[in-house]
Design a protein around this nucleic acid. Structure first.
Lengths: 339, 339
DNA sequence: GCGGGTGGGACATAATATGTCTATAAGGGA
DNA sequence: TCCCTTATAGACATATTATGTCCCACCCGC
């Protein structure tokens, strides 16, 4: 509805931050006036100096007045704040939802992109872009190894990657071996795409979809495989998707009994080739080599990318037992999770 | 209507500029794509480097693409630009009017404050604030002498003045002697108020309202008066209002024949104690000492402050023959002038 | 091949934001 | 009345960012 706002978020992303900051300042002044800079700075958890700049600005705009006893809102500031309060809810819709999600899911950091992937495909790309931003941000200065899974969400991330000087030294590896996906959504393919887009390097994990216990044992001892496994376990970052259990199982042409098992045990979520039920317990695990769920504890940064209102249950289920990650999702999923 | 926008202009003034800049860039790219940085920078009259930062940002937002042949809008960028165009008219309403007024009146610099002084009294204060901003901006580093006239608009400027390190050395003087106004709107009073608010110094011009030719001659040779006159003539800045002829004449308790003269000769505007008709010709001049109209040519900065739709004709008339100034006005007057 | 365009990289410098400290004035309680 | 606490305001060094300026490799039409 408020088109301008959405456009501004896109074209002036920090606008929202500054706006929020000044809004908070004004609110606090109204609440505690007259109040001094130091007290205010403490309460708002910011350095006195930056608050001072902000507050000087507000003074110049005639919204607050300085006195020797502290700062007060002017009449005009009071009016403006009143109007602001009406509008700000809308502005911070997503930010508020992010915080609610962080709390509800116990995830450290949630990023919500406007829209619903189920409705528009470009929303998934937006999630991709957001994720790329996060990746760059979390990049340490030295050699980075990024492990990726398959799925359309992660494919979107790959698509949105752009070369960056920070990314050039990065090595991309698939998190786990063949999971039976279509080529364009396989971890291997995505991994290669990412490396190409980021001008980085990559290693692939060539293992067949169906593995018997025996071939698993022998493969794991292959020198080439072993080497890559080591790389995977020393990954500094994992980027993975979350899928709906049934959809994923079908897409992977799983056996009839497999589908039955999933259905009976009420699996709702899928990630890394693991299937989870509503409470986040593991129902089934596709046998393949690579990153196991318990290995995640050793990896510093784990980013989950999943959106669309239809995935809400899956996201919620998966996150139930695997918190303290970063989640990139969309408005559709967020709303559905928060019901 | 769009409340958020007005609030933003108030609370995030420079973000609006950035918005405009990016908008212009996108438009130009669409027009000339594919286009290179240098060409684009030339066309937009900005340095290549700042354009580069902007354009890199736009790339990161996925709105433009870089290729070896130049930059192009992405599909997304195209969409966004389309939506932006709808909204931007509103954003730049006042800016557009400012440009139109500059053209129509031949004034170098026009500043329009939202609202109409006739409707809300706070609009006049806003003009005052805007004017204060301009004053500070135009302040040269050395001793400044600011000459001011009377009137409610200038009184508003005085009210909005705030101390500033730049202003401390400033000397305020009244532009002309007694013009028969009420005390609070007299040049002398305003002058003193300004100096107090700005922590500057001031000199007053004590001359009676009604002056005979003889006393005029003798006063002008008084050493104390002479000294101040010299200061007035060496003023670095003049801030004056523009009034409606009839209103001003009545407010000054002018004689019956005076009112008649004004009416007959169809005076519409008043400034500095001069009365002007619709084409800007001088109809009458109140005899007092101080700044004469022709002295204005020697003064570097001249700022006119006048607003309210009712003053539109007066502003237009006065400006007809006295262009290349700075005009601070409000939306009401601006709309009325542009009809 | 060549000239004029392109994006990208690099780096010094200007501008700005921020952290830190000090001066000084005003109000409130002993 | 005086002192103590709080406040703003100013000043300045430093960290961070923006900007100006070059240069390079590349691509494309000639």
């Amino acid at each position: 509805m408020n088109m301008l706002l959405d456009l501004q978020k896109k074209i002036l992303p920090d606008l929202v931050d500054v706006l929020g900051l000044r809004f908070r300042i004004l609110r606090f002044i109204r609440l505690m006036q007259p109040i001094g800079r130091r007290t205010l700075a403490n309460n708002l958890e910011m350095s006195e100096r930056v608050l001072r700049s902000e507050v000087t600005f507000l003074k110049e705009q005639g919204l607050v007045e300085f006195a020797t006893s502290g700062m007060t809102l002017t009449h005009e500031g009071h009016n403006l704040l009143g109007q602001l309060e009406v509008v700000m809810k809308e502005v911070f819709q997503t930010r508020t939802m992010e915080e609610e999600l962080e709390k509800k899911l116990g995830v450290k950091d949630v990023h919500i992109v406007p829209g619903d992937s189920d409705e528009y495909s470009w929303v998934q790309k937006e999630m991709g872009r957001a994720c790329v931003g996060l990746i760059k941000q979390k990049m340490s200065s030295k050699e980075n190894i990024i492990a990726v899974t398959g799925g359309t969400s992660i494919a979107a991330v790959a698509e949105m990657l752009v070369p960056d000087s920070d990314l050039k030294e990065t090595l991309f590896v698939p998190a786990r071996g063949g999971l039976g996906e279509q080529v364009e959504n396989q971890a291997n393919t995505i991994c290669a795409t990412m490396a190409r887009k980021a001008m980085g390097s990559y290693r692939l994990l060539h293992v067949p979809d169906q593995l018997s216990k025996e071939s698993y044992e022998s493969l794991i001892n292959e020198p080439t495989v072993k080497e890559i496994l080591q790389l995977i376990h020393s990954a500094t970052m994992v980027i993975h998707g979350i899928g709906e259990a049934e959809t994923m199982a079908k897409r992977r042409n799983s056996s009839e009994e497999m589908l039955k098992k999933i259905h009976e045990k009420k699996a709702v979520a899928e990630a890394f080739g693991y299937y989870f039920d509503q409470s986040g317990d593991i129902i089934h695990k596709v046998l393949t080599i690579g990153l196991q769920l318990e290995d995640l504890n050793d990896i510093p940064d784990i980013i989950a990318v999943a959106g669309g209102s239809s995935k809400a249950d899956a996201i919620e289920a998966y996150m139930k037992q695997r918190p303290s990650q970063v989640l990139v999702t969309d408005e559709g999923a967020a709303r559905a999770i928060l019901t």
